[in-house]
Amino acid sequence: MRAKELMFKFWVILSGIIITVITFGLFLYILYKGIGVVTPEFIIGSPKGIPLGTQGGVFPAIMGSILSGLISGILGGVLGLCTAIYLNYYCKNEIIRKYILNALQCLAGIPSVVIGLFGYTFLVVGLGISKSLLSASITLTVMIIPFISIRMKKALEETSKEQYISSLSLGIPKGYTIVKLIIPSAFKYIMTSLGLGTVFAMGATAPIMYTGVVIVSGVPGKLTDPFMALPYHLYILVNEGLSVEMAYGTAFVLIVIVLFINIACHFTGKNEDV
């Protein structure tokens, strides 16, 4: 019995170590391989060289990724938060609640390439919106909604039901209670969910391949412009055999942006004065 206990403890600790080593190893490896390429010219320049992308920089891709991530993060955040509020505070019917939760689970399970195909068929072909920042952002929003909704639902549950009911007991309606008490109380968790959703969207390639991203373009000036994105640029650099070094540089930039957004969301939540 004691041997089994020790084996279990050993395996649990080993699993933790493996995950930590993989995570930090991956980060450090990409940072190590990419740092040599990352210069000011790489950050603020456009792709150059023949074939295109073997020289120059990734500025349009940085801006494209940030813009598509932010738009889908905002859209997904609003929809996700409202869905979470509905599920936690307004949905009285248990069947409807389960149906919505199951729908979110199903949506979360759909491969991103299928969501991309749906976005292309519905937005680009069906509604006639061109391959653009808008189409891609909406498609990314569909992808991250279940991810954000479930996390925001849990975030709102962090606030005790007693607080919610104490506010109602003062004769204060649900809406005011949610806006003035529940959301500020769960702000840190909400921001963290939003940050994770945004970086999830920024890292996705498949949903934007059919809906808005192109190999080369400038910084999108309006929502209907096509755009470059870091993950797709990385995919092209490797897939077409253009430059593995530049691909690592691109991955480096993407990881730094992702880390920055995560840290910013964490501290935004932490500093919120409630």
């Binding site: 506010s167 204060i172 500020p184």
Partner: peptide, 20 residues
Amino acid sequence: VQKLRNRIGMVFQTPVVFPF
């Protein structure tokens, strides 16, 4: 119901202060 709860207040077993 809001008017009713305004007229009949309630205090719970565990002190529920708001995180303000």
